[in-house]
Design a protein around this nucleic acid. Structure first.
Lengths: 356, 356
DNA sequence: CTGAAAGCGCTAACAG
DNA sequence: CTGTTAGCGCTTTCAG
């Protein structure tokens, strides 16, 4: 039986090669690395033969001890969610990141956010030298942890988020929401509700700012009652919209801008329950272009270039590892507005439900 | 400006801690590792203080040099496909793998198959000691590379594949195809076509064996003309089925078993083009339960427990790392047959197309 | 062109 | 309980 083969034999070291080939360890090293010194061709040949025969390959740990690069970077997925990878959000970003990894012959080390928000968050895996830096995907809280890691001199890039002092790749949230809102205003809407994301999220903040700017630009006041704060999830979108309708019975909004798709769909559900037809009675917009039943719910929204996020993020990290800039670098990758049929001019009779 | 902070200061070493705390390096080591020797509480305290103050954390490379475990394993995705992660296949498996990684406080290092089938395949990343072993996800060719890695003493687990001498986690392919085929036979089918996968794939082989066994069991001969070999992709499913129909005009099959969903859907398309109604004129089965338009194409198929594959695969790897068994271990995770409406009894008049 | 040897940061003997 | 020290496998300087 030829199972296991030399499974128990200790793996050969550079010394073994040197001894076997009858040369010094230095020579073997020069052969392996093609430098920094030259080696006579026949010596080289001899060494390479032994290397192949003994199936030698150098220990990465020993190399790192000499200060050589780890040829790996971390991919931090700071989410407790079970099914994070299969999601239509992380998947494409990770794909982009891995494309760069492949291009640069780096390995990607995955860090899942088991203890992300725990008291006992363990920094060591992030700073123990196995990685040259990290990209952090879609973090919306706990970023002070990453700042701490950054302050230990570890290169870091945030993808789809912003944070003071940290480099990042994100989209033009503010701009997109500004455009979306202007679009509604130009259709004739003056009473536009807003479903905001959690205030601690910079993304949520930027989207709100875009909404606000459009109103300022057109000199339309934002009715306080029209602004509701959710947490990016369907359920809060639904609930806040129900409250909204109840509280503004006599003078309801004619359009609703949600800070993301899930909340927009929640709002849509609420609209249906209140007998409102979208877009005839209520225009709705979202953000993310996450897969939905767009046939039945043709939501106008914003599509983020997720794969591009991954590529640019990993690319930026590589640049930072190389150049060690003193100041953080912020890259903006513009998104694309996807127009479907959830927006229309406001109903002629402002207010009042219409059935049928 | 407080950017960068100590970004340029070299990271502290255990020696730094020892010096600063006025103790020996050994003592610091014992504090860090809670052993193997005890340290007087106040000394310990003092050391821990310095560690915190200097934000020390040990170098993983130096530790590995001492033969300590790497606390990481590789996840090999041997596919050249661009968008591999976002797929409904890899995503769930990876999720399962990561769940185990989290549980055991291991890091997962991703290896994408850039050079998987190249002449110049580079073994070093797989054997350089940064990982304690690898899980290989869904490889159907080039597995001799993995065997070579295994023979260097690196623990390895194949997920959703089998290969001689290698440990693996896979489903009961043979059994599932046997059941599916029996189901058709019991419905009254005697003329059943088979769309096989590539012969080098063990998965494809097992599925064929199940098909065969059902026929032997019921003493039905398999018509050679009814067996076509594809490559698991839609296109070959379509093309082989077109050939099949053309070649068996006078005595066509009443059912078709495809080795996977994509080919099954290709076959369905061909059936439609030939004016056949599924399942009235032709019953079809698939394998994988990959997301399709099941509303319009209610394919009876087999759902593999993908997340479970990941969990069991990573689990098995951990076990192998621990126990170093001499013999490979093969784990089977059973799949579930998903019955929809693509199968029915054969048409009364065997043969002949029916329109309308 | 090649060899000898120092030393990277750590752990765990060995010696108090 | 603590300190001193060898050595893990490699790269690279210093000597030939």
């Amino acid at each position: 039986m030829m199972t296991g083969l030399m499974a128990d034999k200790r793996r050969p070291t550079l010394q073994d090669i040197a001894r076997e080939a009858g040369v010094s360890t230095a020579t073997v090293s020069y052969v392996i690395n093609n430098g920094p010194r030259d080696v006579r061709p026949d010596t080289k040949r001899k060494v390479l033969d032994v290397i192949h025969r003994l199936q030698y390959s150098p220990s990465s740990a020993a190399r790192q001890m000499k200060g050589l690069p780890a040829h790996a970077f971390g991919v931090v997925l700071p989410h407790e969610v079970e099914s994070v990878i299969g999601s239509p959000y992380f998947g494409p970003i990770l794909d982009g990141v891995l494309r760069v990894a492949r291009r640069d012959h780096k390995n990607a080390m995955l860090f899942t956010g088991a203890t992300w928000m725990d008291e006992a968050f363990d920094f060591s895996p992030y700073v123990d030298g196995r990685t040259e830096g990290h990209v952090v995907i879609g973090a919306s809280n706990g970023l002070e942890r990453m700042l701490a890691i950054h302050s230990r001199g570890i290169p870091l890039v945030l993808i789809n988020a912003r944070y003071p002092l940290l480099s990042s790749v994100d989209t033009n949230n503010e701009e997109c929401l500004y455009s979306l809102t202007c679009h509604l205003i130009e259709l004739g809407h003056k009473r536009i509700a807003f479903l905001a994301g959690p205030p601690e999220s910079t993304t949520a903040q930027e989207r709100w700012t875009g909404f606000e700017r459009a109103h300022r630009q057109y000199e339309i006041l934002i009715d306080e009652d029209f602004v509701k704060v959710g947490n990016f999830h369907f359920q809060t979108g639904y609930e806040r919209t129900v409250s909204l309708f109840l509280e503004t019975k006599d003078n309801p909004p004619t359009a609703l801008v949600a800070a993301n798709d899930d909340m927009a769909m929640g709002a849509w559900k609420a609209a249906i329950e209140f007998g409102l037809s979208v877009p005839r009675d209520l225009s709705i917009t979202g953000f993310d272009n996450t897969p939905q039943d767009f046939d039945n719910y043709p939501l106008t929204t914003v599509e983020q270039p997720l794969v591009e996020f991954g590529i640019q993020g990993a690319d930026l990290l590589m640049q930072i590892v190389r150049e060690r800039p003193q100041q953080p670098i912020e890259v903006t990758v513009p998104s694309r507005i996807v127009t479907r049929n959830s927006t229309a001019p406001p109903p002629k009779k402002s207010g009042g439900k219409t059935s049928q």
